[in-house]
Design a protein around this nucleic acid. Structure first.
Length: 551
RNA sequence: GCGGUUGUAGCUCAGCAGGAUAGAGCAACUGCCUCCUAAGCAGUAGGUCGGGCGUUCGAAUCGCCCCAAUCGCACCA
Protein backbone atom coordinates (compact mmCIF):
# COMPACT_ATOMS: atom_id res chain seq x y z
CA UNK A 1 0.00 0.00 0.00
CA UNK A 2 1.41 3.40 -0.83
CA UNK A 3 1.85 6.07 1.77
CA UNK A 4 -0.96 8.22 0.50
CA UNK A 5 -3.50 5.44 0.93
CA UNK A 6 -2.05 4.62 4.34
CA UNK A 7 -2.34 8.24 5.39
CA UNK A 8 -5.88 8.53 4.04
CA UNK A 9 -6.92 5.44 5.97
CA UNK A 10 -5.30 6.79 9.13
CA UNK A 11 -7.30 10.01 8.84
CA UNK A 12 -10.55 8.12 8.40
CA UNK A 13 -9.64 5.89 11.33
CA UNK A 14 -8.94 8.94 13.47
CA UNK A 15 -12.33 10.37 12.58
CA UNK A 16 -14.03 7.10 13.54
CA UNK A 17 -12.14 7.06 16.82
CA UNK A 18 -13.29 10.58 17.54
CA UNK A 19 -16.87 9.56 16.81
CA UNK A 20 -16.50 6.59 19.14
CA UNK A 21 -15.12 8.93 21.78
CA UNK A 22 -18.19 11.10 21.40
CA UNK A 23 -16.16 14.08 20.19
CA UNK A 24 -17.65 14.07 16.68
CA UNK A 25 -21.35 13.40 16.03
CA UNK A 26 -22.41 10.15 14.38
CA UNK A 27 -23.34 10.11 10.73
CA UNK A 28 -21.92 10.73 7.28
CA UNK A 29 -18.27 11.69 7.02
CA UNK A 30 -16.74 13.94 4.42
CA UNK A 31 -14.45 12.34 1.88
CA UNK A 32 -10.75 12.48 2.63
CA UNK A 33 -8.70 14.05 -0.12
CA UNK A 34 -4.96 14.45 0.16
CA UNK A 35 -2.78 16.73 -1.84
CA UNK A 36 0.80 17.80 -2.04
CA UNK A 37 0.68 21.31 -0.60
CA UNK A 38 1.69 24.30 -2.71
CA UNK A 39 4.55 25.14 -0.35
CA UNK A 40 7.16 22.86 1.14
CA UNK A 41 6.68 24.44 4.57
CA UNK A 42 3.22 22.93 4.60
CA UNK A 43 4.58 19.41 4.81
CA UNK A 44 4.57 16.38 2.56
CA UNK A 45 0.81 16.03 2.33
CA UNK A 46 -2.13 18.06 3.48
CA UNK A 47 -5.84 17.59 3.72
CA UNK A 48 -8.79 19.95 3.90
CA UNK A 49 -10.79 17.22 5.66
CA UNK A 50 -11.42 19.30 8.78
CA UNK A 51 -12.85 22.17 6.72
CA UNK A 52 -14.97 19.81 4.66
CA UNK A 53 -16.26 18.24 7.87
CA UNK A 54 -17.17 21.55 9.49
CA UNK A 55 -20.64 21.48 8.00
CA UNK A 56 -21.47 17.80 8.64
CA UNK A 57 -20.12 17.91 12.18
CA UNK A 58 -21.36 21.43 12.93
CA UNK A 59 -18.03 22.25 14.52
CA UNK A 60 -15.24 24.73 14.10
CA UNK A 61 -12.78 23.34 11.54
CA UNK A 62 -9.71 24.07 13.64
CA UNK A 63 -11.29 22.24 16.57
CA UNK A 64 -11.96 19.25 14.29
CA UNK A 65 -8.38 19.39 13.07
CA UNK A 66 -7.07 19.36 16.62
CA UNK A 67 -9.14 16.34 17.59
CA UNK A 68 -8.01 14.50 14.46
CA UNK A 69 -4.35 15.41 14.82
CA UNK A 70 -4.17 13.79 18.24
CA UNK A 71 -5.63 10.56 16.91
CA UNK A 72 -3.55 10.06 13.78
CA UNK A 73 -0.80 7.57 14.48
CA UNK A 74 1.78 5.75 12.42
CA UNK A 75 5.47 4.99 12.58
CA UNK A 76 5.76 6.74 9.23
CA UNK A 77 4.53 10.03 10.66
CA UNK A 78 7.01 12.62 11.90
CA UNK A 79 4.43 15.18 12.99
CA UNK A 80 1.11 16.76 12.14
CA UNK A 81 0.40 20.48 12.11
CA UNK A 82 -2.75 22.51 11.91
CA UNK A 83 -2.50 25.55 9.68
CA UNK A 84 -4.57 28.29 8.13
CA UNK A 85 -8.33 27.89 8.36
CA UNK A 86 -8.04 24.21 9.31
CA UNK A 87 -5.59 22.41 7.06
CA UNK A 88 -3.92 19.35 8.49
CA UNK A 89 -0.34 19.23 7.30
CA UNK A 90 1.57 16.00 7.55
CA UNK A 91 5.33 15.70 7.79
CA UNK A 92 6.52 12.18 7.07
CA UNK A 93 9.59 10.39 8.37
CA UNK A 94 12.37 10.62 5.80
CA UNK A 95 12.61 6.86 5.33
CA UNK A 96 9.13 6.92 3.71
CA UNK A 97 10.55 8.95 0.85
CA UNK A 98 13.49 6.60 0.33
CA UNK A 99 11.49 3.40 0.74
CA UNK A 100 9.06 4.31 -1.99
CA UNK A 101 11.83 5.64 -4.18
CA UNK A 102 13.65 2.34 -3.81
CA UNK A 103 10.59 0.55 -5.17
CA UNK A 104 10.57 2.87 -8.16
CA UNK A 105 14.27 2.33 -8.70
CA UNK A 106 13.80 -1.43 -8.59
CA UNK A 107 10.86 -1.29 -10.98
CA UNK A 108 13.26 0.13 -13.56
CA UNK A 109 11.81 0.57 -17.03
CA UNK A 110 8.40 -0.60 -15.84
CA UNK A 111 7.84 2.56 -13.81
CA UNK A 112 5.25 4.80 -15.40
CA UNK A 113 3.17 2.03 -16.89
CA UNK A 114 0.15 1.62 -14.66
CA UNK A 115 -1.45 -1.77 -14.12
CA UNK A 116 -4.11 -2.74 -16.63
CA UNK A 117 -7.50 -1.35 -15.80
CA UNK A 118 -10.43 -3.70 -15.95
CA UNK A 119 -12.62 -1.51 -18.12
CA UNK A 120 -14.27 -1.84 -21.49
CA UNK A 121 -12.12 -1.02 -24.48
CA UNK A 122 -11.78 2.60 -25.55
CA UNK A 123 -11.58 3.67 -29.15
CA UNK A 124 -9.95 6.94 -30.11
CA UNK A 125 -10.71 8.27 -33.57
CA UNK A 126 -8.75 11.25 -34.76
CA UNK A 127 -7.37 13.18 -37.72
CA UNK A 128 -9.74 11.47 -40.21
CA UNK A 129 -8.88 14.10 -42.79
CA UNK A 130 -10.31 13.62 -46.26
CA UNK A 131 -7.86 11.87 -48.57
CA UNK A 132 -8.07 14.75 -51.00
CA UNK A 133 -5.02 16.74 -50.17
CA UNK A 134 -2.19 17.32 -47.77
CA UNK A 135 -2.52 17.54 -44.04
CA UNK A 136 -2.30 21.07 -42.75
CA UNK A 137 -1.30 22.34 -39.34
CA UNK A 138 -4.82 21.99 -37.95
CA UNK A 139 -4.67 18.29 -38.71
CA UNK A 140 -1.24 18.34 -37.10
CA UNK A 141 -2.69 19.50 -33.85
CA UNK A 142 -5.32 16.78 -34.01
CA UNK A 143 -2.69 14.20 -34.86
CA UNK A 144 -0.48 15.25 -31.97
CA UNK A 145 -3.38 15.38 -29.54
CA UNK A 146 -4.88 12.07 -30.59
CA UNK A 147 -1.68 10.09 -30.63
CA UNK A 148 -0.59 11.54 -27.30
CA UNK A 149 -3.99 10.73 -25.82
CA UNK A 150 -3.74 7.15 -27.02
CA UNK A 151 -0.23 6.83 -25.55
CA UNK A 152 -1.44 8.41 -22.34
CA UNK A 153 -4.44 6.13 -21.96
CA UNK A 154 -2.25 3.12 -22.61
CA UNK A 155 0.26 4.23 -20.00
CA UNK A 156 -2.59 4.62 -17.54
CA UNK A 157 -3.62 1.03 -18.18
CA UNK A 158 -6.70 1.50 -20.33
CA UNK A 159 -7.30 -0.90 -23.20
CA UNK A 160 -7.38 1.44 -26.18
CA UNK A 161 -7.26 1.27 -29.95
CA UNK A 162 -6.85 4.10 -32.43
CA UNK A 163 -8.69 4.54 -35.69
CA UNK A 164 -8.68 6.77 -38.74
CA UNK A 165 -11.97 7.24 -40.57
CA UNK A 166 -11.32 7.67 -44.26
CA UNK A 167 -13.95 9.87 -45.87
CA UNK A 168 -13.60 8.20 -49.22
CA UNK A 169 -17.19 8.08 -50.36
CA UNK A 170 -18.60 11.58 -50.73
CA UNK A 171 -18.60 14.34 -53.32
CA UNK A 172 -15.13 15.32 -52.32
CA UNK A 173 -13.76 12.23 -54.04
CA UNK A 174 -15.39 13.33 -57.28
CA UNK A 175 -13.95 16.80 -56.81
CA UNK A 176 -10.58 15.19 -56.31
CA UNK A 177 -10.93 13.24 -59.54
CA UNK A 178 -12.06 16.34 -61.45
CA UNK A 179 -9.20 18.37 -60.05
CA UNK A 180 -6.59 15.82 -61.01
CA UNK A 181 -8.24 15.51 -64.39
CA UNK A 182 -8.08 19.24 -64.97
CA UNK A 183 -4.42 19.40 -63.98
CA UNK A 184 -3.68 16.40 -66.15
CA UNK A 185 -5.24 18.01 -69.18
CA UNK A 186 -3.54 21.33 -68.44
CA UNK A 187 -0.15 19.70 -68.20
CA UNK A 188 -0.75 18.08 -71.56
CA UNK A 189 -1.44 21.42 -73.16
CA UNK A 190 -5.20 21.40 -73.14
CA UNK A 191 -7.20 24.42 -72.17
CA UNK A 192 -9.63 23.55 -69.44
CA UNK A 193 -11.86 25.32 -67.01
CA UNK A 194 -10.77 24.36 -63.51
CA UNK A 195 -13.73 22.86 -61.61
CA UNK A 196 -15.35 25.32 -59.25
CA UNK A 197 -15.23 22.97 -56.26
CA UNK A 198 -11.85 21.60 -57.20
CA UNK A 199 -8.78 21.40 -55.01
CA UNK A 200 -6.26 23.98 -56.07
CA UNK A 201 -3.33 22.78 -54.01
CA UNK A 202 0.02 22.20 -55.62
CA UNK A 203 -0.12 18.58 -54.50
CA UNK A 204 -2.85 17.94 -57.06
CA UNK A 205 -0.53 19.11 -59.82
CA UNK A 206 2.13 16.77 -58.44
CA UNK A 207 -0.32 13.91 -58.57
CA UNK A 208 -1.13 14.70 -62.19
CA UNK A 209 2.57 14.93 -62.98
CA UNK A 210 3.19 11.54 -61.47
CA UNK A 211 0.41 10.05 -63.53
CA UNK A 212 1.92 11.53 -66.67
CA UNK A 213 5.38 10.35 -65.73
CA UNK A 214 4.18 6.82 -65.28
CA UNK A 215 1.46 6.47 -67.90
CA UNK A 216 2.03 9.36 -70.28
CA UNK A 217 -0.96 10.68 -72.18
CA UNK A 218 -2.69 7.36 -72.50
CA UNK A 219 -5.78 8.58 -70.62
CA UNK A 220 -6.33 11.44 -73.09
CA UNK A 221 -8.08 9.26 -75.56
CA UNK A 222 -10.48 7.96 -72.99
CA UNK A 223 -13.98 8.98 -72.45
CA UNK A 224 -14.06 11.57 -69.64
CA UNK A 225 -16.25 9.48 -67.34
CA UNK A 226 -13.89 6.58 -67.56
CA UNK A 227 -10.86 8.79 -67.08
CA UNK A 228 -12.39 10.40 -64.01
CA UNK A 229 -13.10 7.01 -62.56
CA UNK A 230 -9.51 5.90 -63.03
CA UNK A 231 -8.12 9.17 -61.70
CA UNK A 232 -10.36 8.96 -58.68
CA UNK A 233 -8.87 5.66 -57.78
CA UNK A 234 -5.29 6.59 -58.58
CA UNK A 235 -5.46 9.85 -56.71
CA UNK A 236 -7.16 8.21 -53.75
CA UNK A 237 -4.48 5.57 -53.39
CA UNK A 238 -1.78 8.14 -53.65
CA UNK A 239 -3.35 10.58 -51.23
CA UNK A 240 -3.94 7.87 -48.68
CA UNK A 241 -0.37 6.62 -48.93
CA UNK A 242 0.87 10.19 -48.54
CA UNK A 243 -1.30 10.68 -45.46
CA UNK A 244 0.09 7.59 -43.83
CA UNK A 245 3.62 8.57 -44.65
CA UNK A 246 3.25 12.10 -43.30
CA UNK A 247 1.59 10.86 -40.15
CA UNK A 248 4.29 8.32 -39.50
CA UNK A 249 6.91 11.03 -39.87
CA UNK A 250 4.93 12.89 -37.23
CA UNK A 251 5.09 9.85 -34.92
CA UNK A 252 1.47 8.96 -35.51
CA UNK A 253 0.23 5.48 -36.34
CA UNK A 254 -3.21 3.91 -36.26
CA UNK A 255 -4.46 0.48 -35.29
CA UNK A 256 -7.27 0.67 -37.82
CA UNK A 257 -8.03 2.55 -41.02
CA UNK A 258 -11.77 2.50 -41.54
CA UNK A 259 -13.08 3.20 -45.02
CA UNK A 260 -16.37 5.03 -45.31
CA UNK A 261 -16.99 3.14 -48.55
CA UNK A 262 -17.58 -0.05 -46.58
CA UNK A 263 -20.70 1.57 -45.14
CA UNK A 264 -22.23 2.19 -48.57
CA UNK A 265 -24.88 1.32 -49.29
CA UNK A 266 -25.78 -1.58 -47.05
CA UNK A 267 -24.86 -0.39 -43.55
CA UNK A 268 -26.41 3.01 -44.18
CA UNK A 269 -29.59 1.54 -45.62
CA UNK A 270 -29.78 -0.76 -42.62
CA UNK A 271 -29.33 1.91 -39.98
CA UNK A 272 -31.86 4.19 -41.64
CA UNK A 273 -34.27 1.28 -41.72
CA UNK A 274 -33.69 0.58 -38.03
CA UNK A 275 -34.35 4.22 -37.23
CA UNK A 276 -37.46 4.23 -39.37
CA UNK A 277 -38.80 1.16 -37.58
CA UNK A 278 -38.32 2.82 -34.23
CA UNK A 279 -40.23 5.86 -35.48
CA UNK A 280 -37.24 8.20 -35.61
CA UNK A 281 -37.38 8.85 -39.34
CA UNK A 282 -40.00 10.69 -41.35
CA UNK A 283 -40.31 11.85 -44.92
CA UNK A 284 -40.73 15.42 -45.98
CA UNK A 285 -40.08 17.18 -49.26
CA UNK A 286 -38.85 13.94 -50.77
CA UNK A 287 -36.09 13.54 -48.19
CA UNK A 288 -35.80 11.32 -45.14
CA UNK A 289 -35.35 13.21 -41.89
CA UNK A 290 -34.00 12.08 -38.54
CA UNK A 291 -36.17 13.29 -35.70
CA UNK A 292 -33.11 14.48 -33.79
CA UNK A 293 -35.05 17.21 -31.99
CA UNK A 294 -36.52 14.41 -29.90
CA UNK A 295 -33.04 13.94 -28.48
CA UNK A 296 -32.01 17.50 -27.83
CA UNK A 297 -30.95 18.72 -31.27
CA UNK A 298 -32.00 22.18 -32.48
CA UNK A 299 -33.62 20.90 -35.64
CA UNK A 300 -34.28 17.67 -37.43
CA UNK A 301 -31.66 16.52 -39.91
CA UNK A 302 -31.81 15.09 -43.38
CA UNK A 303 -30.24 11.67 -43.67
CA UNK A 304 -31.34 10.73 -47.20
CA UNK A 305 -31.58 13.58 -49.68
CA UNK A 306 -34.50 13.98 -52.06
CA UNK A 307 -32.26 12.56 -54.79
CA UNK A 308 -31.81 9.39 -52.77
CA UNK A 309 -28.18 10.05 -51.85
CA UNK A 310 -27.36 9.72 -48.16
CA UNK A 311 -25.93 12.73 -46.36
CA UNK A 312 -22.63 12.76 -44.57
CA UNK A 313 -24.58 12.45 -41.34
CA UNK A 314 -26.15 9.19 -42.50
CA UNK A 315 -22.71 7.68 -43.01
CA UNK A 316 -21.60 9.01 -39.67
CA UNK A 317 -24.56 7.43 -37.95
CA UNK A 318 -23.80 4.09 -39.57
CA UNK A 319 -20.14 4.51 -38.66
CA UNK A 320 -20.76 5.23 -35.00
CA UNK A 321 -23.25 2.45 -34.75
CA UNK A 322 -20.59 0.19 -36.21
CA UNK A 323 -18.18 1.34 -33.52
CA UNK A 324 -20.63 0.46 -30.78
CA UNK A 325 -21.30 -2.87 -32.44
CA UNK A 326 -17.61 -3.62 -32.23
CA UNK A 327 -18.00 -3.60 -28.47
CA UNK A 328 -16.20 -0.45 -27.39
CA UNK A 329 -17.27 0.85 -24.01
CA UNK A 330 -16.14 4.35 -24.77
CA UNK A 331 -15.75 6.21 -28.04
CA UNK A 332 -13.55 9.25 -28.11
CA UNK A 333 -13.62 11.44 -31.21
CA UNK A 334 -11.21 14.27 -31.67
CA UNK A 335 -12.78 16.84 -33.95
CA UNK A 336 -11.89 20.32 -34.99
CA UNK A 337 -13.93 22.97 -33.23
CA UNK A 338 -15.46 23.89 -36.59
CA UNK A 339 -17.39 20.59 -36.37
CA UNK A 340 -18.90 21.25 -33.01
CA UNK A 341 -22.34 21.81 -34.48
CA UNK A 342 -22.18 18.17 -35.44
CA UNK A 343 -21.79 16.72 -31.97
CA UNK A 344 -25.36 17.11 -30.92
CA UNK A 345 -26.87 15.43 -33.97
CA UNK A 346 -24.57 12.41 -33.88
CA UNK A 347 -25.27 11.94 -30.19
CA UNK A 348 -28.97 12.35 -30.90
CA UNK A 349 -28.73 9.62 -33.52
CA UNK A 350 -26.97 7.31 -31.07
CA UNK A 351 -29.68 7.93 -28.51
CA UNK A 352 -32.30 7.20 -31.15
CA UNK A 353 -30.55 3.90 -31.79
CA UNK A 354 -30.77 3.10 -28.11
CA UNK A 355 -27.13 3.67 -27.20
CA UNK A 356 -26.05 5.68 -24.20
CA UNK A 357 -24.82 8.83 -25.91
CA UNK A 358 -22.58 9.69 -22.98
CA UNK A 359 -20.37 6.81 -24.04
CA UNK A 360 -19.49 8.94 -27.05
CA UNK A 361 -17.06 11.63 -26.01
CA UNK A 362 -16.24 14.29 -28.57
CA UNK A 363 -13.15 16.33 -27.76
CA UNK A 364 -13.20 19.56 -29.69
CA UNK A 365 -9.84 20.89 -30.67
CA UNK A 366 -9.75 24.64 -31.04
CA UNK A 367 -8.38 26.24 -34.15
CA UNK A 368 -4.75 26.84 -34.98
CA UNK A 369 -3.84 30.21 -36.40
CA UNK A 370 -0.51 30.55 -38.09
CA UNK A 371 1.49 33.73 -37.99
CA UNK A 372 4.35 34.51 -40.29
CA UNK A 373 6.13 37.82 -40.14
CA UNK A 374 3.48 38.98 -37.71
CA UNK A 375 0.78 38.37 -40.28
CA UNK A 376 -2.00 35.84 -40.01
CA UNK A 377 -1.59 33.10 -42.60
CA UNK A 378 -4.97 32.13 -43.95
CA UNK A 379 -5.56 28.44 -44.23
CA UNK A 380 -7.56 27.14 -47.10
CA UNK A 381 -7.37 23.89 -48.97
CA UNK A 382 -8.92 25.52 -51.97
CA UNK A 383 -6.36 28.22 -52.52
CA UNK A 384 -3.44 25.98 -51.80
CA UNK A 385 -1.88 28.63 -49.60
CA UNK A 386 -2.14 26.68 -46.42
CA UNK A 387 0.93 25.57 -44.54
CA UNK A 388 1.11 21.83 -44.56
CA UNK A 389 2.09 19.57 -41.72
CA UNK A 390 5.08 18.54 -43.78
CA UNK A 391 6.27 22.09 -44.13
CA UNK A 392 5.83 22.59 -40.44
CA UNK A 393 7.88 19.50 -39.67
CA UNK A 394 10.62 20.70 -41.97
CA UNK A 395 10.63 24.17 -40.51
CA UNK A 396 10.49 23.48 -36.81
CA UNK A 397 11.06 19.75 -36.51
CA UNK A 398 8.69 17.02 -35.45
CA UNK A 399 9.58 17.20 -31.77
CA UNK A 400 9.13 20.95 -31.47
CA UNK A 401 5.91 20.91 -33.47
CA UNK A 402 4.43 18.13 -31.35
CA UNK A 403 5.42 19.73 -28.10
CA UNK A 404 4.04 23.09 -29.17
CA UNK A 405 0.72 21.48 -30.02
CA UNK A 406 0.60 19.51 -26.81
CA UNK A 407 1.72 22.03 -24.25
CA UNK A 408 -1.56 23.90 -24.29
CA UNK A 409 -4.95 22.54 -23.48
CA UNK A 410 -7.01 21.16 -26.33
CA UNK A 411 -9.74 23.74 -25.95
CA UNK A 412 -7.63 26.82 -26.12
CA UNK A 413 -6.97 28.41 -29.45
CA UNK A 414 -3.43 28.20 -30.62
CA UNK A 415 -1.45 30.99 -32.20
CA UNK A 416 1.48 29.32 -33.87
CA UNK A 417 4.22 31.78 -34.67
CA UNK A 418 6.22 30.13 -37.40
CA UNK A 419 9.10 32.56 -37.24
CA UNK A 420 9.47 32.02 -33.54
CA UNK A 421 9.25 28.26 -33.78
CA UNK A 422 11.73 28.31 -36.65
CA UNK A 423 14.40 30.12 -34.70
CA UNK A 424 14.90 26.99 -32.58
CA UNK A 425 15.97 29.21 -29.75
CA UNK A 426 15.68 28.27 -26.13
CA UNK A 427 12.23 29.81 -26.19
CA UNK A 428 11.16 26.39 -27.19
CA UNK A 429 10.73 24.36 -24.03
CA UNK A 430 11.13 21.05 -25.78
CA UNK A 431 14.87 21.69 -25.99
CA UNK A 432 15.00 22.30 -22.29
CA UNK A 433 13.48 18.90 -21.58
CA UNK A 434 15.54 17.07 -24.15
CA UNK A 435 18.64 18.78 -22.85
CA UNK A 436 17.99 17.43 -19.37
CA UNK A 437 17.76 13.94 -20.81
CA UNK A 438 20.89 14.36 -22.92
CA UNK A 439 22.82 15.66 -19.92
CA UNK A 440 21.98 12.57 -17.91
CA UNK A 441 22.98 10.30 -20.77
CA UNK A 442 26.24 12.16 -21.01
CA UNK A 443 26.91 11.60 -17.33
CA UNK A 444 26.11 7.92 -17.68
CA UNK A 445 28.58 7.61 -20.52
CA UNK A 446 31.38 9.35 -18.66
CA UNK A 447 30.78 7.58 -15.39
CA UNK A 448 31.19 4.30 -17.18
CA UNK A 449 34.65 5.33 -18.29
CA UNK A 450 35.84 5.84 -14.72
CA UNK A 451 34.47 2.49 -13.61
CA UNK A 452 31.41 3.77 -11.83
CA UNK A 453 28.09 2.09 -12.50
CA UNK A 454 24.58 1.62 -11.29
CA UNK A 455 24.55 -0.24 -7.98
CA UNK A 456 21.91 -2.88 -7.24
CA UNK A 457 21.36 -1.46 -3.80
CA UNK A 458 22.36 2.19 -3.73
CA UNK A 459 22.25 4.00 -0.39
CA UNK A 460 19.38 6.28 -1.39
CA UNK A 461 19.16 7.80 2.08
CA UNK A 462 22.34 9.70 1.25
CA UNK A 463 20.26 11.87 -1.10
CA UNK A 464 19.53 14.61 1.39
CA UNK A 465 20.13 17.78 -0.58
CA UNK A 466 16.95 19.73 -1.22
CA UNK A 467 17.41 19.48 -4.98
CA UNK A 468 17.66 15.71 -4.55
CA UNK A 469 14.58 15.26 -2.39
CA UNK A 470 12.59 17.60 -4.63
CA UNK A 471 13.48 15.50 -7.62
CA UNK A 472 12.60 12.28 -5.80
CA UNK A 473 9.22 13.67 -4.78
CA UNK A 474 8.46 14.73 -8.33
CA UNK A 475 9.37 11.29 -9.63
CA UNK A 476 7.11 9.70 -7.04
CA UNK A 477 4.20 11.81 -8.29
CA UNK A 478 4.53 10.57 -11.84
CA UNK A 479 2.14 7.63 -11.86
CA UNK A 480 -0.56 9.67 -10.21
CA UNK A 481 -0.04 12.39 -12.79
CA UNK A 482 -0.37 9.87 -15.61
CA UNK A 483 -3.54 8.53 -14.08
CA UNK A 484 -5.09 11.94 -13.68
CA UNK A 485 -4.01 13.23 -17.08
CA UNK A 486 -5.58 10.15 -18.66
CA UNK A 487 -8.80 10.54 -16.69
CA UNK A 488 -9.05 14.15 -17.84
CA UNK A 489 -7.96 13.41 -21.41
CA UNK A 490 -5.34 16.07 -20.82
CA UNK A 491 -2.00 15.32 -22.46
CA UNK A 492 -0.90 18.88 -21.73
CA UNK A 493 -0.51 17.84 -18.10
CA UNK A 494 2.23 15.46 -19.18
CA UNK A 495 3.89 18.20 -21.20
CA UNK A 496 3.88 20.29 -18.09
CA UNK A 497 5.17 17.46 -15.94
CA UNK A 498 8.05 16.73 -18.31
CA UNK A 499 9.04 20.37 -18.12
CA UNK A 500 8.84 20.49 -14.33
CA UNK A 501 10.88 17.37 -13.74
CA UNK A 502 13.49 18.63 -16.18
CA UNK A 503 13.67 21.88 -14.29
CA UNK A 504 14.24 20.03 -11.01
CA UNK A 505 16.95 17.98 -12.65
CA UNK A 506 18.74 21.07 -13.99
CA UNK A 507 18.71 22.56 -10.49
CA UNK A 508 20.14 19.36 -9.07
CA UNK A 509 22.77 19.26 -11.79
CA UNK A 510 24.00 22.73 -10.98
CA UNK A 511 24.23 22.02 -7.28
CA UNK A 512 25.31 18.39 -6.95
CA UNK A 513 28.06 16.49 -8.68
CA UNK A 514 28.28 12.82 -9.39
CA UNK A 515 31.85 12.44 -10.51
CA UNK A 516 34.34 13.42 -7.90
CA UNK A 517 32.26 12.70 -4.83
CA UNK A 518 32.52 9.79 -2.44
CA UNK A 519 31.57 6.51 -4.12
CA UNK A 520 28.40 5.63 -2.21
CA UNK A 521 26.97 9.09 -2.73
CA UNK A 522 27.92 8.98 -6.40
CA UNK A 523 26.11 5.67 -6.77
CA UNK A 524 23.02 7.03 -5.04
CA UNK A 525 23.03 10.09 -7.29
CA UNK A 526 23.55 7.94 -10.32
CA UNK A 527 20.50 5.93 -9.31
CA UNK A 528 18.53 9.15 -8.95
CA UNK A 529 19.43 10.59 -12.34
CA UNK A 530 18.90 7.22 -14.03
CA UNK A 531 15.34 7.10 -12.75
CA UNK A 532 14.88 10.76 -13.68
CA UNK A 533 16.09 10.04 -17.22
CA UNK A 534 13.68 7.15 -17.46
CA UNK A 535 10.73 9.27 -16.35
CA UNK A 536 11.66 12.07 -18.75
CA UNK A 537 11.94 9.53 -21.54
CA UNK A 538 8.64 7.96 -20.57
CA UNK A 539 6.76 11.24 -20.45
CA UNK A 540 8.28 12.40 -23.74
CA UNK A 541 7.26 9.02 -25.13
CA UNK A 542 3.65 9.74 -24.23
CA UNK A 543 3.94 13.05 -26.06
CA UNK A 544 5.54 11.35 -29.05
CA UNK A 545 8.64 13.49 -28.66
CA UNK A 546 12.06 11.91 -28.94
CA UNK A 547 14.53 11.83 -26.07
CA UNK A 548 17.98 12.33 -27.61
CA UNK A 549 21.04 10.95 -25.85
CA UNK A 550 23.24 13.71 -27.22
CA UNK A 551 22.55 17.28 -28.20
C1' G B 1 -30.10 36.02 -32.89
C1' C B 2 -28.69 30.92 -30.86
C1' G B 3 -24.75 27.57 -29.32
C1' G B 4 -19.34 25.93 -28.29
C1' U B 5 -14.49 27.66 -26.72
C1' U B 6 -11.38 31.43 -24.87
C1' G B 7 -10.25 36.08 -21.84
C1' U B 8 -4.72 35.16 -15.84
C1' A B 9 2.34 39.39 -15.66
C1' G B 10 4.55 43.64 -21.46
C1' C B 11 4.17 38.72 -24.84
C1' U B 12 2.87 33.20 -25.10
C1' C B 13 0.38 30.29 -21.78
C1' A B 14 -0.15 26.70 -17.08
C1' G B 15 -3.34 26.40 -12.92
C1' C B 16 -9.88 25.47 -13.03
C1' A B 17 -12.96 17.21 -9.40
C1' G B 18 -13.30 25.37 -4.75
C1' G B 19 -8.68 25.76 -0.36
C1' A B 20 -3.26 28.48 2.44
C1' U B 21 1.01 34.44 -0.09
C1' A B 22 -2.03 32.97 -8.21
C1' G B 23 2.77 29.97 -11.37
C1' A B 24 6.28 29.06 -15.74
C1' G B 25 8.79 30.52 -20.26
C1' C B 26 10.11 34.75 -23.28
C1' A B 27 11.32 39.89 -22.92
C1' A B 28 13.97 43.40 -18.71
C1' C B 29 17.60 43.72 -14.70
C1' U B 30 21.77 41.31 -11.15
C1' G B 31 25.02 37.39 -10.29
C1' C B 32 27.29 32.09 -11.59
C1' C B 33 31.64 28.35 -16.47
C1' U B 34 40.13 26.42 -13.70
C1' C B 35 34.06 22.14 -12.04
C1' C B 36 29.79 15.65 -15.24
C1' U B 37 27.00 19.82 -22.08
C1' A B 38 25.90 27.84 -19.88
C1' A B 39 20.35 24.83 -25.06
C1' G B 40 21.99 25.41 -17.82
C1' C B 41 21.57 27.55 -12.59
C1' A B 42 20.58 31.33 -8.62
C1' G B 43 18.11 35.93 -7.85
C1' U B 44 15.21 40.92 -8.77
C1' A B 45 11.07 43.15 -10.92
C1' G B 46 6.36 42.55 -13.05
C1' G B 47 -1.06 40.72 -11.63
C1' U B 48 -7.98 44.92 -9.50
C1' C B 49 -7.08 36.26 -12.66
C1' G B 50 -12.16 40.72 -18.85
C1' G B 51 -16.41 43.34 -15.77
C1' G B 52 -20.56 42.69 -12.36
C1' C B 53 -23.81 39.92 -9.21
C1' G B 54 -24.46 35.40 -6.61
C1' U B 55 -23.42 30.34 -3.96
C1' U B 56 -19.73 29.16 0.00
C1' C B 57 -16.26 29.33 6.13
C1' G B 58 -13.33 30.03 1.48
C1' A B 59 -13.99 31.54 -5.81
C1' A B 60 -8.97 32.41 -11.08
C1' U B 61 -11.81 27.67 -10.25
C1' C B 62 -19.01 26.75 -9.45
C1' G B 63 -23.90 29.60 -11.21
C1' C B 64 -26.29 33.84 -13.68
C1' C B 65 -25.79 38.53 -16.51
C1' C B 66 -22.72 41.77 -19.50
C1' C B 67 -18.31 42.90 -22.68
C1' A B 68 -14.49 41.16 -26.16
C1' A B 69 -12.10 37.43 -29.42
C1' U B 70 -12.93 33.04 -32.11
C1' C B 71 -15.52 28.79 -34.36
C1' G B 72 -20.12 27.01 -35.83
C1' C B 73 -25.57 27.29 -36.74
C1' A B 74 -26.61 22.99 -45.01
C1' C B 75 -30.59 17.96 -48.50
C1' C B 76 -21.10 20.50 -47.91
C1' A B 77 -17.65 17.25 -46.00
Amino acid sequence: MDIKTTLGNAIEEAARLAIADGVFPEGEMAKVSLEVPPKKEFGDFSTNFAMQSAKVFHMNPRKIAEELAGRIKGDWLERTEIAGPGFLNFYLKSNVLYDSFRKIFEAGEAYGQLPAKDTARIQVEYVSANPTGLLHVGHGRGAAAGSALVNLLRAAGYPVVSEYYINDAGNQMDHLAMSVNARYLELLGKTVQFPEDGYRGADIIDTAKRIIKRDGDKYLAMDETERLSIFKDLAYQEKLAALKEDLEAFHVTFDEWFSERTLHPEAIREVVETLRESGNIYEEGGALWLKSTAYGDDKDRVVIRDNGVPTYLAADIAYHRNKFQRGFGKLINIWGADHHGYVCRVKAAMSALGYDASRLEVLLLQMVSLYRGGELVKMSKRTGESVTLNELMEEVGTDAARYFFLMRSLDSQLDFDLDLAKTQSNENPVYYIQYAHARICSIQRQVEEIGLGLSDSPRLELLTDETETDLIKKIEEYTEEVDRAAAEYAPQRIARYAYDISSLFHSFYNKCRIMGVERELAEARLALVSVAAHVIRHSLGILGVSAPEKM
